[in-house]
């Protein structure tokens, strides 16, 4: 299988890339890692007229902590996230389970976020940790909270000419922990069900902040807001997590498909929420 014809623009700066996108209009697509886009083009389900390759833009490949945030540039590959010392909690937990090792060498975290595949891992992690997406368009840079960014399956609120140039993930200042439990059928598969959990504890050991989000069980990655509200202010406990798990299970609206029945997927959400929160709490208590 081979892609159909397109024009290729190799951008050297973000401004050049954005300008090329303005010129290309609707038929233009940015190309970073290409690990989703190129297969879609080979299968001929995507037919961009112009590809704007951003891989040669300098300065977008850093993953580092700054101003209380984990900053991730548009050319940071999943493998860079795996290898980074700057990550924490759910981010660190999810990274090794994205795609497979070779795809991780090429695919980018920002590209995956922008792709908004409801079966993608990163948007759940960003929802749980309360991250922002940094976009740059013709009129400059703006920051969009991940909850506002994810709009639907494969759609975001990104402007037509905007490029995701980075992510800003708040780094907890106190004791914190996170987990990303993913049930996949094999390495390289999308999640059948995955649960991102994030907990911050105050000095008393009570939960000061909580994040919980689900992958592959709704039309978009889903933040379980009522469970987060439930958790905050409480001492971590098995009973509490079981209660949160019920809310997560209720928030999931999975479908029957070849991966399994809806009832079972909801059960996995329940189980993985319990286990994920317990793991996050344990990590936080030990931090």
């Amino acid at each position: 299988m081979f892609p159909s014809r397109f024009d290729l623009v190799v951008a050297q700066t973000v401004a050049e890339a954005v300008e090329a996108k303005v010129d290309a209009g609707e038929g233009g697509r940015f190309l970073a890692g290409g690990q989703s886009l190129i297969p879609m083009m080979k299968m001929r389900v995507a037919f961009p007229e112009t590809l704007i390759d951003i891989n040669r833009i300098a300065g977008l490949d850093a993953i580092e902590r700054s101003n209380g945030h984990l900053q991730v540039g548009a050319l940071v590959r999943h493998a860079d996230v795996v290898a980074s010392d700057a990550t924490f909690g759910a981010v660190a937990a999810a990274a090794p389970w994205v795609a497979d090792p070779l795809v991780r060498n090429r695919g980018t975290m920002c590209g995956s976020v922008a792709h908004c595949d409801p079966e993608g891992d990163w948007n759940s992690v960003l929802l749980a940790t309360g991250a922002d997406v940094i976009a740059q368009g013709p009129s400059g840079e703006r920051s969009i909270s991940i909850a506002d960014f994810v709009d639907g399956a494969f759609t975001s609120t990104l402007g037509e000419d905007e490029l995701v140039v980075g992510l800003r993930i708040p780094v907890p200042s106190g004791r914190s922990g996170g987990a990303y439990l993913k049930l996949e059928r094999k390495i390289g598969d999308y999640a059948t069900v995955a649960v991102a959990s994030h907990l911050e504890l105050d000095d008393s050991g009570a939960i000061a902040a909580a994040g919980l989000a689900l992958t592959s069980v709704n039309p978009i990655n889903t933040k379980v807001a009522d469970a987060e509200v439930l958790l905050v202010g409480q001492q971590p406990s098995e009973e509490l997590f079981a209660e949160a798990a019920e809310l997560a299970a209720a928030a999931a609206e999975p479908r029957d498909d070849v991966r399994g029945t809806a009832a079972w997927k909801r059960q996995v959400v329940r189980t993985y929420t319990k286990r994920g929160l317990a793991a996050a709490a344990q990590q936080a208590e030990g931090s």
Binding site: R185, K186, I187, G188, D189, V258
Partner: peptide, 16 residues
């Protein structure tokens, strides 16, 4: 056909 490519037709890797 469900199982028309290696994303849906699951061939185990070394890990599984």
């Amino acid at each position: 056909c469900i199982g028309a490519n290696f994303m849906d037709y699951l061939v185990p890797t070394a890990w599984e």
